[in-house]
Design a protein around this nucleic acid. Structure first.
Ligand SMILES: Nc1ccn([C@H]2C[C@H](O)[C@@H](COP(=O)(O)OP(=O)(O)OP(=O)(O)O)O2)c(=O)n1
Ligand SMILES: [Mg+2]
Ligand SMILES: [Mg+2]
Length: 674
DNA sequence: ATCCTCCCCTAC
DNA sequence: TAAGGTAGGGGAGGAT
């Protein structure tokens, strides 16, 4: 089978029914005693390794005496570089954290999953940006962590929910009692140094203050003019139109629904590019991805912004929990990443320019980029609104082809794209990372093996936060470690599919072909923000809206379904106050599935079944923080026509056939008035 | 063996 | 204050 991605299933978080068995301090771990024993041994071993390394390097200062850091997730500088720096300056680097073996967590990317983990740690440590280490070394003394805190945001038990504006102490960064300013931090009091930009090593270089002021003013104007930001944000309690307004402003809804929208584009004007010629040699695959897509759209429309740190976000509140959607590459130099809270981003870069979303424009740019890609090759596999695989085998010099493709996209949209080129999908995707921003990179088949060795495990597709932890718990920290394990052993530890996929991925092996979009298997709608109910009837009413939503989407997609799943987020016992404004906080996730006898549905049928499942889950209405409905076992309307045959015929050789399939679908949709 | 249900994980 | 969605893959464990 294809080695598309690697996923580790199984419960990595403590499951609700496990929680009584777990030491509270280790809630985020999921292993039993034998694991702990193993880790204890492993950690002493690493400690020895560290001692040896420190001796080799020679300790040049004692800046970090008494400091023990644990580095979480991807950082710049890398884990390895931070480890060396800590060693050189008298600190300790902890690979496997226990509640007591480290003093700080170093992290530059605050993803949802990480926040969840930090939230869970009972005896939490300050979460600090790697800049703290770099700046302390530069200053030759241990600087206060305050300006470098990423987040000490936590759920605090015993406080009320949805506090009125201005009273949310829990979202404010904790003060560490020592108010010395970050040497690089811009300050209100000192306008002369107010606009700083990062520099690779040397002193901060100021942005032009006048330009910066103009850019900030322009951003403020955009925010003021943004329809989505009119009026105070409301929860499900106060907004009768909550579901609709939530979806219309949700970026994740936008990117999640993109495929559905893209379909109608591909149907409207099929642009048949040249068909790849397989030939005897290796395939040539492009992975095309727009650079900082949403941020790039803002930059292209407002040239004033370019070269300055910019992020797309609903809110500019420097203490708030609005999430960054996309940060441009200047902002990324400060460590700003998608998914971070604005509070964290502004700590890293107080001068960050924040612009609101422009979903209509993203849609247009996405469509234009797809048209250009489809003109480049007839064999395009959409991955997301800003990303696709192209099979360009036999279509000419790949490097020139990529240059032309990128130039065309930029000319048409004002946004830059990067292209990764490889002999398979995995290598092409990895090449894109090297190419970015505004570049292209061909990893030749001969260099693929060594390229793999330079990657972090989390660079492998499918290896996210949980899988990285799981691998680390098995003593696997690098691609080389992974390669040293047999396929059978990986399968035994991680499951059959996951183990095999990892074994392949670590070697740069990927047997997938560029393929047409697959037939949809499920369809759903959920809301996990602003969900607060005052009565069981509120919950029922909300489910009614969701049922309508799902039913509408089923109609638009031309499907019916036999299986309905209700998903609930239930406030975890003892946690009352989500970190994120109107967020769900720490929850137990519950689900129930109902199977219908006949796929015939109406919104009312769906609603009734959903309400029955809600009742059977016995969750008090006040504890519900998120709710969703999903339909599976879909019957596609198309299947009754010869769509099914068309699909079957294109399963093997991926080529231009699927455009005719889309055409067939289009005709059918037209005939249904869609 | 193969299913089904209830999760978990990942990517955008 | 702010909009933490969506779809697919896959694993564990029990039922068939
Ligand atoms: N956590 C995320 C990830 C992505 N997106 C949105 C905004 C991005 O612009 C778009 C495309 O996602 P990418 O992963 O391609 O990220 P970018 O295009 O922003 O940056 P890159 O240059 O790394 O591709 O999806 C988002 O809102 N939240
Ligand atoms: Mg992108
Ligand atoms: Mg992308």
């Amino acid at each position: 089978m294809a080695s598309s991605g690697v996923r580790s299933g199984g419960a990595v978080q403590a499951r609700p029914d496990d929680k009584l068995l777990l030491d509270p301090d280790e809630e985020s771990l999921h292993h039993g005693g034998s694991f702990r024993t193993y880790m204890h041994h492993k950690m002493s071993k690493l400690g020895e390794q560290f001692e040896a390394q420190a001796a080799d390097l020679g300790v040049s200062s004692r800046i970090f005496q008494g400091v023990a850091v644990h580095v979480n997730g991807y950082t710049s500088p890398s884990h390895q570089e931070l480890k060396v720096l800590m060693a050189k300056h008298g600190g300790v680097f902890i690979n496997y954290p226990t509640p007591t073996n480290h003093t700080h967590i170093i992290c530059s990317n605050l993803t949802d999953a990480k926040i969840k983990q930090f939230e869970k740690a009972r005896n939490h440590k300050p979460v600090v940006s790697p800049e703290w280490i770099l700046e302390s070394i530069k200053a030759q003394s241990l600087l206060p962590i305050a300006p470098f805190l990423l987040s000490t945001l936590r759920d605090i038990p015993g406080q009320q929910r949805l506090l009125p504006f201005g009273t949310r102490a829990d979202v404010l960064p904790a003060k560490d009692g020592c108010g010395t300013a970050h040497p690089m931090a811009a300050s209100e009091e000192n306008p002369a140094t107010a606009y700083n930009q990062p520099s690779p090593m040397g002193a901060p270089v100021a942005y032009d203050p006048a330009e910066m002021r103009a850019a900030q003013a322009e951003a403020a104007r955009l925010r003021a003019a943004c329809d989505m930001l009119k009026g105070a944000p409301k929860s499900s309690r106060d907004d009768p139109n909550f579901v609709e307004s939530f979806f219309s402003a949700s970026r994740l809804h936008f990117i999640g629904m993109w495929k559905t929208r893209l379909e109608s584009l591909m149907l409207s004007g099929v642009i048949g590019g040249p068909t790849p010629n397989p030939g005897p040699g290796a395939q040539v695959i492009f992975h095309v991805d727009l650079d900082c897509f949403f941020a790039s759209v803002a930059e292209s429309e407002h040239p004033l912004f370019s070269g300055k740190p910019l992020a797309v976000c609903h809110s500019n509140n420097a203490k708030g929990t609005a999430e960054i959607s996309s940060a441009n590459y200047e902002a990324r130099k400060y460590g700003i990443r998608a998914g971070m809270f604005m509070a964290g981003a502004k700590q890293l870069c107080p001068d960050l320019i924040v612009v609101p979303y422009n979903f209509e424009r993203y849609q247009e740019v996405s469509e234009q980029a797809y048209k250009i890609m489809m003109a480049c090759s007839a064999c395009v596999q959409p991955l997301s609104c800003d990303e696709a695989f192209l099979d360009v085998t036999g279509l000419g010099d790949p490097f020139q082809l990529a240059s032309r493709l990128r130039a065309d996209i930029q000319a048409a949209t004002g946004c830059t794209a990067s292209v990764g080129i490889g002999h398979n999908l995995l290598i092409a995707r990895l090449a894109t990372k090297r190419a970015k921003p505004d570049g292209q990179c061909h990893i030749q088949e001969a260099e693929a093996a060594s390229a793999m060795l330079s990657l972090e495990l989390s660079d492998l597709p499918g290896v996210g936060w949980a899988t990285s932890k799981k691998l680390a718990s098995l003593g696997l920290q690098s691609v080389a470690d992974l390669q040293a394990w047999s396929k059978a052993r990986l399968q035994a530890e991680l499951g059959d599919k996951t183990g095999a996929a990892l074994w392949d991925a670590s070697r740069g092996i990927d047997t997938r072909r560029v393929a047409p979009p697959a037939v949809r298997k499920s369809l759903g709608a959920e809301v996990n923000w602003g969900v607060r109910f005052d009565s069981p009837q509120d919950a029922t009413r909300f489910l009614g809206k969701l049922a309508e939503e799902v039913w509408t989407r089923m109609g638009a997609a031309g499907v019916q379904g036999r299986s309905l799943t209700l998903k609930l987020k239930k406030r975890k016992e003892g946690v009352y106050n989500p970190v994120k404004f109107m967020g769900h906080g720490i929850c137990d996730n519950l689900s129930r599935t109902h199977t219908f006898h006949r796929p015939a549905h109406s919104a009312a049928t769906i609603h009734r079944a959903a309400c029955d499942m809600l009742t059977s889950l016995h969750v008090p209405h006040a504890d519900i923080r998120g709710i969703g409905l999903g339909v599976r076992e879909l019957c596609h309307w198309e299947e009754r026509i010869d769509w099914g045959q068309a699909v079957a015929s294109m399963v093997q050789p991926p080529s231009l056939i699927w455009f005719s399939c889309l055409n067939a679908l289009h005709t059918q949709q037209m005939s249904r008035g869609l």
